[in-house]
Structures are given as C-alpha cells and as structure tokens.
Design a protein around this nucleic acid. Structure first.
Length: 578
DNA sequence: ACACGGAGCGCG
DNA sequence: AAAGCGCGCTCCGTGT
C-alpha cells in the first residue's frame, strides 16, 4: 500500500503467501524496493506462492517498481476493490454501510494517471505525498480499509466468488500498468505510409493534406457551395438540403441511402477527416515514442467492469491502422480473440444446454443456423445482439422471439435482468459486481408517473426511461461477466508468461528505447482480444499459453459447463486488419 | 477565455 | 431510424 503518514513514511503491506489473513507485514519506505524484490525472488526460488501486496492503488506504486525491474505477481488494489464492494449486492448490509461510509476511497478514476510517466519512481515524489487524487495516503487508513474489505468479503453471501472478483480486478490493475510500461510495438513508418496513401503526404502544420483538399473541393462543387465548411454538421446539413438531399442528419449511414454526386466524395471526406483528427500525424507525434504506443488503461473504468482507456484512444484504434502494429525484429505478435464471447458467457451463465450445443463449433452463429432457428448467419447475429442489447424493432425484434423459444434459459436470464432494471432494481454479474442504483431523479419520475394525475406524456417518458434502464441491466450482466472472464483469462496468461525463460539480452524487446522485456509479454488488450509480443522462439509456447489460459478461465468461472471459448489466433510479424 | 453538450465515428 | 449495450476522442456551436 501506500503513501506517507504525517511523518513521511511509506509503507507496503504484504498479505502473506497463501493469500490468507495473518498479521500484515508492513514494509518500511527506505527498503521498499529491496523488500518487494526480495520477497518476490524468495517465493520464486522456493517455488512457493508469491506474496500478495496490498496497496492503495497500482498506478501509484507499481510503475516505479516496474521501472526498477521489479515485478509484482499479486496484489490487492484497495481502490478498485472498494469500488466493487461498495455496490456489490453480495456484501451484507451492515458492512456495506461501513464500506460506503469510507468515502475517501470512492475515487472513480485515478486523476493524474494520465501524467504518470513510466519512468517515475516511488521516490521521485519529493515534497510530501504523491498527489493521488483523494486516495488516503496514511498507512493506518489503508489498514483500516483493508480490514473493512476483508470483513465485507468474508461475511458476504458468496465469499468464494467475491474473492475471485477481487483477485481478478487486482490482477487487472497490475496488467494495466505493465501494458503501459511495455507499450504497443508501433511502426511509425508504416503508419505514415497508410496516412500518406489515404490522405496525401504529411502537410505543413496547420494545413490540410492534399487528397483531403481535393475531395473537399469535389463535395463543395457537387453541392454548389464553394465556401462550405464540411466540418460543421449544422452547415453541412443545410447545404445538403439546399442541394435537394433530404437527410435528417449528416451521419454516414443516412447519407449512404441517397443518390447524389456529392455523397460519395462526402463519405470519403468524412473517413479521411476522422483518420486525420483521431489518428493522424499529430496523434503519432504525441503518442508514439521509441517505437511504442503507450496508452493509459483504466481498469474498472466502465460500470460493467470493462476497462476504459485514457489518452490516445487505445481501445478505438481503427482496424485500418492495425498494420502499424509490428513486432520488433526477431519477435512475433501472437494475437488472439474470442469468438462470440458475450453469447457464450450468457450460455454458460444460464446453463442453457441448447445454446451451448449451438456454440460447440467455432462459430456460435453458424450453430444457431444449423439448429434451424434462422436461415442465415447474419440473422443469427442480429438476433443474438438483439437479445443481449434488448432490441425490439426491425429484424432483431422479429428474430428474438424465436431465440426465446429455442434458448429459453439464456433468454430468461437476460429478460429477468431487464425486468429487474425496469423496476429500479439492481443486477449482478456472475462474480458479484452489481449495477449502480438508479438515479434519484429516475426513481422519482417513475413514482410520479404512477399518480392518477400524471399526463400521458409524463407516463410515456417514464416508461421509456424504464425500458432504457432495462436494456442497461439486461446487458450489464452479460457484458460484466464477459469482462470477468476476460480478466481471468489475462490473469492466468500473465502468470504463465512470467514463467517463460528469458532470452539473451541481444534478443530482448526494446525497440529503440530501454529494454522492457526478455520474454513473451502482454502488449495489448481489447475486451475480448489480447496481443502477446514474443521472441520468435517463444511464439508457439505463447500461443499455447493463450489457449490454455482461455480454457482455465472457462473452468474457473463456469466449472463443469459444456460451453467452450474458442479463439481465433494468429502468429505474425505485423498485425493485419481483419 | 473556458466549460459543456451534441454530433459523429472509432472500438468491442 | 442504425434497431439495441458499453466506451473515448475531436470537432463545432453555444453559453457564460
């Protein structure tokens, strides 16, 4: 853990090798790095379970350790765990109230994380405590919170599940820091080639790339408006109307339905503008250094438990730029993504035998077609997405009832989650992460709409917002449990990779910067996809580890379930767009 | 000068 | 009308 007391000490709590409670050993500041390194090495030598370090939060402490070459195998992240426990319905009321009362730990996203540079160490923070946005800095406060959390978990309705969640969430905290430190191997020359091919050569600062200028001129010509600003939706919409194109918005899907000489160049311009502003040369200059793109990952950044990211849009890298992801010389990218993770998670959670059978191949949607529910894969996909998201209109509204007959257990699970949400209730993932309670304004609007004097407009609005919330809770249980599966997958994979031998120094992964790793390591994560950067000699072993970890995650979360989690896995030098 | 919401689009 | 979930980022336009 954590920060400085008034006297200026820094301390870390070592939970003990078996993860059980014992007297926590508080590590003194002067020996912090040495103590962590020593305990970790000691456990490795003995082959015993590694210690679990308890700290305020990983981004405050781990980058410094990592920069000094010290890795931590396990931790308990007080801040992340606090967030889980303060909402979890598994926690008994009395302790939950205590947790909720400790508001100083309720810091949703770590402010300052963006500024956390990889090279910063624990000891750089002169002049008092690190400014870690409100997370308590005193060791006593951390020990108290740790004690509360342990009591909340031990006395909960399902300690075993909550412990899994806490371990997975904390492992995610370590992985996020390690991913940032490792960075994504990024080939700026390839990135520049893609930009140049699509936009024209890099323009002088403040100028528009040549191809964009050309295409914009085509649009203005076709619309007969030589001064039109294409970047203002309002002005563009007016110009479209003047040209007789009857659209309600300027969005791509709607434009595509019209025939007019302006449409094709406009769609092309939008695509170009997006690439330039979101991932153009400016992005490259800001985010890629020494051959690595280092985004900030935010574990638990989404209410469902998914990760968010901050800085550079790590989770939104366009597939168009995937070829810029390139392994170091002599290294490989081992990329794997799970086929239809969310529906599989639903099938396993619900114990839906028929849906498990449909997913027995590698393509669950094909399995649904084979089961005779729908005629085409596209229909299967639209139907399943409608089931997960609460679709009622169009094709999905037509197909979902059929899925309800064929997969009654799976559909009952999501339908009940939706119903609970509509009533203002709380739903939980498999491991016990619970949805936030409704906004007080939401609740009061629902109550008011039931008064006899409520108008129909008020009733409609209330019903609509009830259904909105129902769709949220419907999706919450699946998206959140899928996130738990993915964390378990990565946690297992991370430990497996850590046991790989180191390759000789001259083969290490370092791009043009400092050596980061001498063995296969995680380099990217995106909800249901991982990329491992591995020495060529370890690529096959890494691929096996990825598959074995996926199997392990399935067994851990769904023991005895027939549902499997097949991967699409490729070993390449350069990531390719799908 | 800055904050903020909406539009639009990238990802799953 | 992108039908139906969750995000981040950039831009514009408005409000202060």
């Amino acid at each position: 853990m954590t920060g400085r007391t008034a006297e200026g000490e820094v301390a870390l709590v070592d939970l003990g090798p078996d993860g059980s409670r014992g007297a926590p050993q508080v590590v003194e500041p002067s020996g912090l790095l040495a103590a962590v390194a020593h305990r970790e090495a000691h456990a490795a030598e003995l082959g015993s379970a590694p210690p679990r370090w308890v700290w305020s939060d990983a981004p405050a402490w781990y980058p410094g350790l990592l920069a000094s070459g010290t890795r931590v195998q396990r931790c308990h992240d007080l801040r992340l765990v606090h967030t889980v426990l303060r909402h979890s319905q598994l926690v008994q009321d009395k302790v939950a109230a205590e947790i909720r009362a400790a508001e100083q730990w309720d810091v949703p996203v770590h402010p300052g994380t963006e500024q956390q540079s990889v090279g910063a160490t624990l000891f750089d923070m002169d002049g008092g405590s690190p400014t870690r946005g409100g997370v308590p800095q005193r060791i006593e406060a951390a020990l108290e919170e740790f004690d509360r959390q342990q009591r909340a978990i031990d006395g909960s309705k399902d300690p075993a599940r909550l412990r899994l969640l806490v371990a997975a969430e904390s492992a995610g905290a370590l992985i996020a820091v390690e991913l940032q430190a490792a960075g994504i191997p990024w080939d700026v020359a390839e990135h520049d080639r893609i930009l140049t091919a699509d936009l024209g050569p890099r323009p002088r600062p403040g100028h528009t790339p040549a191809l964009m200028v050309e295409v914009a001129a085509q649009v203005r010509e076709a619309l007969g408006d030589p001064m039109l600003s294409l970047d203002s939706p309002v002005k563009l919409l007016r110009a479209l109307h003047r040209a007789g194109i009857d659209v309600r918005s300027t969005s791509r899907w709607e434009l595509a339905e019209h025939q007019h000489p302006a449409i094709q160049p406009l769609l092309r311009y939008k695509k170009m503008a997006r690439l330039l502003t979101a991932n153009g040369w400016a992005w490259m200059d800001e985010w890629v250094h020494e051959g690595r793109y280092r985004p900030v990952y935010v574990p638990g950044g989404v209410v469902t438990g998914r990760w968010a990211s901050s800085g550079g849009g790590a989770l939104q890298i366009p597939r168009q730029l995937r070829p810029a992801l390139r392994a170091d010389p002599g290294w490989r990218l081992v990329s794997a993504d799970v086929s239809q993770l969310e529906p599989r998670v639903l099938a396993a959670m619900a114990g839906d035998r028929a849906m498990a059978r449909a997913g027995a191949g590698t393509d669950l949607y094909a399995g649904i077609v084979a089961a005779g529910v729908v005629a085409t894969r596209q229909e299967a996909k639209v139907g399943v997405l409608g089931a997960l998201y609460g679709g009622t209109a169009g094709d999905s509204g037509r197909i979902v009832p059929r899925l309800r007959r064929t997969f009654p257990d799976a559909m009952r699970l999501v339908d009940q989650a939706a119903e609970t949400g509509e009533r203002g209730g709380t739903v939980s993932t498999l491991l016990g992460r619970s949805s936030p309670p409704p906004d007080p304004a939401w609740t009061s609007a629902q109550l008011h709409s039931h008064r006899p004097e409520a108008g129909t407009a008020e009733q409609d609005r209330a019903r609509r917002s009830a259904r909105d919330r129902g769709r949220f809770t419907r999706n919450f249980v699946v998206q959140g449990t899928a996130a738990e599966w993915a964390l378990s997958w990565m946690a297992a994979l991370r430990l497996a990779l850590a046991s790989f031998d180191e390759v000789p120094l001259d083969q290490a992964a370092h791009a043009s910067g400092p050596v980061f790793s001498r063995r296969a390591h995680l380099a990217f994560f995106l909800h249901d996809e991982v990329i491992v950067h591995a020495p060529a000699s370890q690529a096959d072993a890494a691929a096996r580890a990825i598959r074995e970890s996926a199997d392990a995650a399935g067994r851990l979360l769904f023991p005895g379930s027939p549902v499997d989690f097949p991967l699409d896995l490729v070993i390449t030098e350069r990531s390719s767009a799908k």
